[in-house]
Write a protein that binds this DNA or RNA. Sequence first.
DNA 1: ATAATAATGCAATAGAGTTGCAATAACGGT
DNA 2: ACCGTTATTGCAACTCTATTGCATTATTAT
Lengths: 143, 143
Amino acid sequence: MFEKNKSEQLLRQYGLKVTSNRLLVLDVLMSSRTALSHGEIQKKIQGSRLDKVTLYRTLDTFVKHDIAHKVASEDRNWLYALHPIDENDSVRNDHAHFICDYCERIYCLPVETRNTVPLPESEEGFVIRTHEYRLHGVCPQCH
Amino acid sequence: MFEKNKSEQLLRQYGLKVTSNRLLVLDVLMSSRTALSHGEIQKKIQGSRLDKVTLYRTLDTFVKHDIAHKVASEDRNWLYALHPIDENDSVRNDHAHFICDYCERIYCLPVETRNTVPLPESEEGFVIRTHEYRLHGVCPQCH
DNA sequence: ATAATAATGCAATAGAGTTGCAATAACGGT
DNA sequence: ACCGTTATTGCAACTCTATTGCATTATTAT
Ligand SMILES: [Mn+2]
Ligand SMILES: [Mn+2]
Ligand SMILES: [Zn+2]
Ligand SMILES: [Zn+2]
């Protein structure tokens, strides 16, 4: 038996049917350093006839099955990215988002962010379950 | 001379013309514990004939003059809020946002959040200028 | 009161994302 | 290799938030 490619393995591993659309979108996400919007992904796969609705649904499927996650961009669009891998090759659900002030790209940075910002005494009744740390500044591309 | 009300003073202080629309919107924002969407504000001022476009522009004006700030909500709408006041009655530009998993309301919490998450060595070329800390969990209303 | 300027209301428009439904493709079982 | 079940896909129409252009109206300094 031949070894299946990585994207195909990943889909089967998550119990998803292997379709050319999903493989295509997965490849795009895997080869991007930044989180991508629906529109950006469409541009990267122009030529293939993948409908925009199917792309929305494919991305939702990835998020629902926790293959990918989505981040709200500053212009209120969703950006999609696979989970970042840390130095031990393990997935980090807990990480920071870096938003460039110039190109507005969003990077997922595998940074430990837990237990860093305690609530002040005065703010009672708020129970924290998860968090997102968003950093703004200048990215390596824009120096 | 009679003492002007607080909203009117605030507008003059920021060099803005005093209009009934602006006073109305300012009152709504001042009396809310959570950040409000355009739609929520419209509901609260139903009866007044303030056009939806004017409301958008009024909110933008407040943001541009730094009377208020806006936060992207989880469902991709803008939410608007005045700057939170800390225990010394001074404005905090640097604060956290608490997003309730149930009611989805966003609260501005006057929490010190500076310099809490250093980047790892491996992530070079990112220059951090500002940040936003988003906390998710259960708010006091939803216990 | 008047003039200069900014704010406002209305209609049309843009853009991201969603819904319903019929056609098609994936895949386990034979 | 074929079939039947079920999930995926493409298309059209639609929803919803927000924006733009422009003529009208209100605010403020003089
Ligand atoms: Mn991320
Ligand atoms: Mn805030
Ligand atoms: Zn950049
Ligand atoms: Zn709540």
